[in-house]
Every structure is written in C-alpha cells, then in structure tokens.
Amino acid sequence: DHWEIRVGDITIHLKDVDEEIIRWVEEALRNGDDLEEIKRWVEEVLR
C-alpha cells in the first residue's frame, strides 16, 4: 500500500502503513502539530 497525506502545501508519502497511523497523522496535521515531530513519530512506529 502507498499513502499520500495532503494538508495544505504539505504532502507526506507513506508506504505499508496501518490506517490507524494515517488517521493519527491526519489528525495531528489538522491540529497544527509540528511536522518534524510527526515524521519522527511515524518513523518510530514503522521501525
């Protein structure tokens, strides 16, 4: 699977990601969370 999350001008590409993570990231972006923080979290989860 390949996911693209778009929020404003930001697009995040994710592969082999659980839908729950996608929802979490979308929510975090909508809440204005720091992008670097989100990326770190996702990388942590995917490890």
Rank of each mutant, 00 (worst) to 15 (best):
E27F: 08
V17A: 09
E27W: 12
D33Y: 11
L14H: 02
D34G: 09
R40G: 03
H2V: 14
T11L: 12
R40I: 06
V25R: 00
E19H: 14
W3S: 04
K15H: 13
V25L: 09
E19P: 14
H13E: 12
R30Q: 07
W3E: 05
H13G: 09
L35E: 08
E27L: 12
N31E: 06
L46A: 02
E4N: 05
A28S: 07
I21N: 01
R30W: 08
I22Q: 10
E19G: 07
E44H: 04
E43F: 04
I38H: 00
T11P: 02
T11I: 12
D34P: 08
E37F: 06
E36P: 01
I38N: 00
T11Y: 12
V7I: 11
E4Y: 08
W24G: 05
I22R: 12
E43A: 07
D1H: 14
D16W: 06
I22L: 13
E20Y: 14
I12C: 01
E20P: 06
V45S: 06
D33A: 05
E37Y: 14
N31G: 05
E37R: 08
I10P: 00
D9N: 09
D33W: 15
D18M: 14
D33I: 15
R23Q: 09
D1L: 14
D9E: 11
E19K: 13
W41R: 10
I5K: 01
I38G: 00
N31D: 01
R23M: 08
E27H: 12
V17Y: 13
E19F: 12
R47T: 15
V17I: 10
V17L: 13
R30I: 08
V17D: 02
I10V: 08
E44Q: 04
E4C: 12
E36T: 07
W24C: 03
D33G: 10
R23N: 07
V42P: 00
L35H: 06
D16E: 08
R23Y: 03
D34W: 15
G32A: 08
E4Q: 07
E36W: 04
T11N: 04
E36R: 06
G32L: 08
I22K: 10
R30D: 05
D16V: 10
T11R: 05
I12M: 08
W3G: 05
V17R: 06
T11F: 09
G32S: 09
G32F: 12
E27C: 02
K39H: 11
L29I: 13
G8P: 02
H13C: 07
L14Q: 02
E36I: 06
I5Q: 02
E20F: 09
H2S: 12
H13D: 09
D34A: 11
E44S: 03
E26G: 06
I10K: 10
R47F: 09
W3Y: 12
L46W: 03
E26Q: 11
E4G: 02
G32R: 08
D18Y: 14
I22P: 02
R47D: 12
E43Y: 06
E26N: 12
H2A: 05
L46R: 01
R40Q: 09
H13I: 14
R23P: 00
L14Y: 07
R23G: 03
R47G: 15
R6T: 14
I12W: 11
A28M: 12
D18K: 09
L14W: 14
E19L: 12
E37I: 06
